[in-house]
Amino acid sequence: MNLLFVADPLSSFSVKKDSTLAMMLEAQAKGYAIWHCHIEDIKSVAGAIYAKSQKIKIDMAGSPWYVSTQTKEMKVAAFDAVIMRKDPPFDMSYVTATWFLSQAKLEGAKIFNDPVALRNHSEKLSLLEFLQYAPPTLISYDLKDIQDFHREHQDIIIKPLDGMGGMGIFRVKSDALNLASIVETLGDSGKRALMAQKFLPEISEGDKRVLVIGGKAVPHGLARIPQGGEVRGNLAAGGKGVACPISEKEAKVAEHIGPLLASRGLHLIGLDFIGGYLTEINVTSPTCFVEITQQTGYDVAKQWLTSLEQYLK
């Protein structure tokens, strides 16, 4: 089986903990051929969608950890499966890639996550469909709306809709210090909508990532615990990752949301919880495979590949 991974440059992978690499290794262990391309390598030629891709062999003892054995321009639909793992930002290049992949899907390509679903699913706004599980939440362009929300809840988090890895997240306490300035800066003076949520003190126990694969939750999640006075638990912001079993409440939320989003083509999602409240639904390139596997012994990549194989039957 030939698998094409659409991802960031291989040289940029964090080898010790990269979830895409964990997927590749699991697939290679099953004897599958691993191919890689960037979103910029996808194009339309005479109406068909092609990707200039390199076939790689992974050797974790080598330096670098991969060897390119072949480079070829192939129809995207010729691969047995296409794994879309390009990291944010969700910019026009990303959107264009989903348009190309949507056409490739019409040509018969099997793509995970589905490009139409990726394009339609905002990792922040998608929460609106499931607000019964979320903390008090507001999304608006308007400074007054956010000021009113703050007056009601006193201690809030403000973040941009297109942020990743904890970038652009601010806490505003009861004194409202710099609230207007934060909103004006993050919102580009009213040109960008922002998300505001009631601050959850349970963040001290971690921002917990729960992975859901093919509609089924991984039994262990990763609590990303803020360090050094930070309010952000994101690993990219210095948070400490601690694996632990998912709670009964988290499991019930996953049982509701997971199959629904899987039916829309979102094979792999990451649900983020703070204190049992759902705060985001990640779909672009959910991570934490390696940390969970290393700390618990539960093979997340194996669950992912087994689920993928079932979809391809």
Rank of each mutant, 00 (worst) to 15 (best):
V183C: 07
A81D: 11
I157W: 08
T71Y: 00
G239H: 11
G62V: 02
G265R: 04
L131C: 06
R171T: 06
P201V: 07
Q310R: 04
C244R: 10
Q70T: 12
V212M: 06
G31R: 00
A33S: 11
T98G: 09
P201I: 02
V76W: 05
Q70H: 07
T69E: 13
V172M: 13
A223E: 01
W99C: 12
G241W: 01
G276F: 06
Q147H: 05
I139D: 06
S68W: 00
K144T: 07
K86E: 08
A236V: 12
S68I: 15
A29K: 15
L118Y: 06
E129D: 10
D91S: 13
V242L: 10
A262E: 12
A262W: 04
G215E: 02
Y133F: 15
D8L: 02
L261Q: 13
V67P: 01
I269V: 10
S63E: 09
E248G: 04
L312D: 12
S263A: 07
P136Y: 14
S140L: 13
K124V: 07
A243E: 04
A117W: 08
A7M: 14
K240C: 05
G206D: 08
V218W: 10
S285A: 12
L4V: 01
K313Q: 14
E123C: 11
M84L: 14
A193K: 15
G239Y: 09
A262S: 15
P245I: 09
R224S: 04
F13G: 01
G233D: 04
Q28T: 06
S189L: 12
G168Q: 06
V290K: 03
H267Q: 11
L127S: 04
E280A: 14
Q197S: 06
N120A: 15
D142F: 12
T306I: 00
K249D: 06
K208P: 09
G47M: 06
G163N: 13
F13P: 00
A48K: 15
H150P: 02
K30P: 04
T137E: 14
L179N: 02
G228S: 11
L3F: 05
S307D: 03
K75Y: 02
T306L: 02
S44T: 05
Q103M: 03
I111A: 13
